[in-house]
Write a protein that binds this DNA or RNA. Structure first.
Length: 273
DNA sequence: CTAAAATCCTGGTGGC
DNA sequence: TGCCACCAGGATTTTA
């Protein structure tokens, strides 16, 4: 049950713009206080009321709503968070812990079975997303940028790819997929990568994320849903993730699952060195 | 610096 | 059938 990563969050942002740009928040119900990271719930409710949604963006795995009084509403879906837009009189969702009312009578509903997701309302978005690493798909994120970042690190490669301060937006699915495409073992130390390996990894990260984006994300166990409730398509194109004991699509060897940095990790012991 | 462990949560799973 | 211990997992915090 993987969480939304860069391609999933980007797909959700794209789906939210149509129904939400130009709308104004008229209130918000908070059914589980811990989901509001800051400010305190009463201030959160009072301060968001009357603010219009001017824009919606993604940064890493965060959604950022630019609001009319200068605030940013920032949402992280973590593992099981979903966002839907529904008529206000539609049936309540079982896990709709945070429900935003809009001036057209609809609601933006933040559903989250495991309650790991978080919502922030801040004047300065930097206090939430300011320490994130570069966007891997940005035009100005070059091979030499990536190479420089990799060379100054000594740690195990896979946890490094999951470190949002190192590079933003990669999670467990696409870390495994990118390492497979690059032919690199997840437990390699960053400092041992040769120039050609760094290049392969850079290209693999961008290729894997781009394809997942084109597929509108990966839906596993129904955990990630598009705004319209539909599933993504990339689960059909996964090469190693969640394919333990199945044949490697490249060499036919048996895909293994190990734990790296506390995370379930899938790889081909033949193709990845 | 790296890294391991604990924390937050609950649906799903496997054992008996 | 039912009970229950246990697990996954992102990011943060704490501890080594």
């Amino acid at each position: 049950m993987p969480m939304p990563e860069l391609p999933e969050v980007e797909t959700i942002v794209n789906g939210l713009r149509g129904p939400l740009i130009g709308r104004t928040f008229t209130g918000v119900r908070v059914g589980w206080e811990n989901i509001v990271a800051r400010p305190a719930v009463p201030e959160f409710q009072q301060r968001i009321r009357g603010q219009q949604i001017l824009g919606i963006r993604r940064r890493g795995k965060y959604l950022i709503f630019d609001l009319s009084r200068g605030d940013s509403l920032i949402i992280h879906l973590k593992m099981t968070g979903q966002l839907t837009v529904r008529p206000g009189d539609a049936q309540a969702d079982k896990y709709g812990h945070t429900v935003f009312d809009l001036d057209d009578g609809c609601q933006l509903r933040f559903l989250d079975t495991r309650k790991f997701g978080r919502v922030y309302l801040v004047a300065d978005e930097g206090e939430v997303v300011g320490s994130l690493g570069p966007e891997p798909l940005a035009d100005n994120f070059t091979l030499s940028d990536f190479s420089a970042l990799i060379r100054e690190r000594a740690g195990t490669l896979k946890p490094l790819l999951l470190n949002q301060k190192f590079i933003a937006g990669i999670g467990n699915i696409y870390a495994d997929e990118a390492l497979f495409v690059a032919g690199i073992h997840p437990q390699r130390k960053a400092g041992t990568l040769m120039g050609n390996e760094i290049k392969r990894l850079y290209q693999a990260i961008r290729q894997v994320l781009c394809q997942a984006l084109a597929d509108e994300g990966t839906t596993f166990d129904g955990a990630y849903r598009k705004v319209d409730g539909g599933e993504g398509g990339h689960q059909e194109n996964l090469l190693v993730f969640q394919r333990k004991e199945q044949p490697c699509p490249r060499c036919g060897s048996t895909i293994e699952r190990i734990v790296v940095g506390g995370r379930g990790t899938y790889f081909c012991p033949c193709c990845q060195k």
